[in-house]
Simulated assay, not measured.
Amino acid sequence: MTQLTSQPVSVAARDLGSGDMRYYDFVMAAFVAIILLSNVLGAGKVAQVWLPGVGQWPFGAGILFFPVSYVIGDVLTEVYGYARARRVIWAGTIAVLFMAFMSWVVVALPPAPGWNNQAAYQTIFGQVPRIVLASVCAFWAGEFVNSYVLARMKLLTQGRMLWARTIGSTIAGEGIDSLIFYPLAFLGAAGWTSELVLTVLFTQWALKVAWEVVLTPVTYAIVGFLKRREGIDVYDRGTNFTPFAARL
Rank of each mutant, 00 (worst) to 15 (best):
1 M>T: 14
5 T>F: 06
6 S>A: 15
8 P>Y: 13
10 S>W: 10
10 S>G: 10
11 V>W: 03
12 A>S: 10
15 D>E: 15
15 D>C: 02
18 S>K: 04
19 G>D: 13
20 D>E: 14
20 D>C: 05
22 R>L: 08
23 Y>C: 04
25 D>Y: 07
25 D>T: 13
31 F>L: 05
33 A>G: 09
34 I>Q: 04
34 I>E: 05
35 I>Y: 05
35 I>E: 07
38 S>M: 03
38 S>H: 02
41 L>E: 01
43 A>Q: 03
45 K>P: 00
45 K>E: 09
48 Q>I: 11
53 G>C: 05
53 G>V: 08
53 G>S: 05
54 V>I: 15
55 G>Q: 09
58 P>T: 10
62 G>T: 09
62 G>D: 02
62 G>C: 04
64 L>C: 08
65 F>V: 15
68 V>S: 05
68 V>D: 01
70 Y>Q: 09
72 I>V: 15
75 V>P: 05
80 Y>T: 05
81 G>Q: 09
82 Y>L: 10
83 A>C: 09
84 R>C: 11
86 R>N: 12
86 R>I: 13
86 R>H: 10
88 V>T: 14
88 V>H: 06
88 V>N: 08
88 V>W: 11
88 V>F: 06
90 W>Q: 08
90 W>N: 07
93 T>M: 12
94 I>H: 01
95 A>L: 03
95 A>T: 04
95 A>P: 02
98 F>W: 12
100 A>G: 08
101 F>I: 08
101 F>A: 13
102 M>S: 08
107 V>R: 00
109 L>V: 08
110 P>I: 02
111 P>R: 04
111 P>F: 02
115 W>A: 10
117 N>K: 05
119 A>T: 04
120 A>D: 07
123 T>I: 03
128 V>C: 00
134 A>N: 01
137 C>W: 12
137 C>N: 09
137 C>I: 13
139 F>S: 04
140 W>R: 02
142 G>Q: 04
142 G>P: 01
145 V>A: 14
146 N>K: 15
150 L>V: 13
152 R>Q: 15
155 L>M: 06
155 L>Y: 02
156 L>I: 15
157 T>L: 14
157 T>C: 10
158 Q>C: 08
159 G>I: 11
161 M>L: 13
162 L>D: 07
164 A>L: 15
168 G>C: 09
170 T>Q: 14
171 I>D: 11
173 G>H: 07
174 E>K: 04
174 E>V: 06
175 G>A: 12
175 G>R: 08
176 I>F: 11
178 S>M: 06
179 L>S: 13
185 A>I: 00
185 A>Q: 00
185 A>T: 01
187 L>C: 01
192 W>F: 12
197 V>R: 00
199 T>H: 10
199 T>C: 01
201 L>I: 02
202 F>W: 13
203 T>F: 06
203 T>G: 06
205 W>D: 03
207 L>N: 07
207 L>W: 03
212 E>G: 13
216 T>S: 06
218 V>C: 02
220 Y>Q: 11
220 Y>W: 11
220 Y>K: 10
222 I>Q: 05
223 V>H: 04
226 L>N: 03
228 R>V: 02
231 G>K: 07
231 G>N: 06
232 I>H: 04
234 V>L: 14
240 N>Q: 11
241 F>E: 12
246 A>R: 10
248 L>K: 03
